[in-house]
Design a binder for these strands. Structure first.
Lengths: 191, 191
DNA sequence: GTCTATAGCCAGATAGAC
DNA sequence: GTCTATCTGGCTATAGAC
């Protein structure tokens, strides 16, 4: 069952508004106005406001889950896997920064799909954690608390959406070089 | 003009609920119920729901601004200043993780104090940026885009509130040692 | 597929008794 | 300082004409 163009357009505009103002602050009337229609007409295309939110969030969450499974099956080093994960986050933040923002800020307002989303997210974070622990075990990473490493990486990667929209295409290529280097080797100059 | 104990208690409970559910999702009736009173009674202590939000956010924002001015007047090295800033964020996230969460998630819902808040935040981020640029100039930091460094540091520090509540006191002391090291020198083991 | 009209509910805030 | 009652207006969603 494919999604009509009109429905796609509604979701696209909704994502923009939700990112700017927050899910709860955007009414169906606001959304309809941005699409030059009336709120009641929206319901010919979508079932509920929550359906829009679920669609936006699950699209992003499923892409992360799928990509993570591919990266895990890749038998490269821990550092190489981390580099791929950093690139994945930059890629998604660049392609769909609205979606990424909404995942971070409004997942709490999911109802029907809340459990499914939380499972996808746990699965992703657990896989990330395993990669880090393996890196410590085989001496690719420093012997510090693996949770602290997980946190510093995920907090940076999960907030890329705040920062990437300001960047041009050229900057993105530069970021793909600089960010793995900074996160792995730090910001301090070593003589 | 000092704040009554009852008002402090209202703000304290509000901060807890706002963090858990988001500012817009918590009604005055919800807040009143958590305080075992009726919504109308709240208005003997506060002027509006927005006043509670402003109070929570500005308390945190002003503490950052004040501390930043002290750190800037300190004539130590760039790395030493960054270490103090990292400790400042850990300190505030530990003391007031609700406030920090609300600053990040709900500043967008400020009305009267929005401009003041944005000024405090800009001032803080600009000072942070100047410290980084100085560090690059005098070869303490790597010669990469200073905005990228600012972003990696701030994104980690600004999301400490998500992570610190799970930590015990002992872990906090460990974090004050490990986090500056990880951010400055990276996570990779150097042989 | 879009509209007008509206149901049913909940929000922030106020008036006034006690 | 807390209460009950209520105002005013916003919300999501539906009914039914065109």
């Amino acid at each position: 069952m494919s999604i009509s163009n009109r429905k796609k357009e509604i979701i696209r505009i909704a994502a923009k508004l939700f990112k700017e103002q927050g899910y709860r602050a955007v009414s169906m009337r606001d959304l309809a106005k941005a699409l030059h229609m009336k709120a009641s007409s929206l319901y010919n295309h979508i079932q509920s406001k929550e359906e829009i939110l679920s669609h936006i969030i699950l699209e992003v969450a499923e892409e992360y889950a799928t990509s993570m499974r591919q990266i895990q099956n890749n038998d490269s080093s821990c550092k190489q896997k981390l580099k791929l994960l950093i690139e994945l986050h930059i890629h998604i933040a660049n392609k769909n920064s609205h979606g990424m923002a909404i995942v971070q800020k409004d997942w709490i307002h999911l109802k029907k799909e809340m459990e499914y989303y939380k499972n996808l997210r746990s699965e992703y974070e657990n896989s990330f954690y395993e990669i880090i622990k393996e890196g410590i075990r085989n001496a690719e990473l420093k012997e510090v608390n693996p949770e602290t490493i997980l946190f510093t990486l995920l907090s940076t990667l999960n907030t890329l959406y705040l920062w990437i929209p300001k960047k041009t295409e050229l900057d993105i290529e530069n970021l793909k070089k600089e960010l793995p280097m900074l996160l792995l080797l730090g910001i301090a100059k070593t003589k």
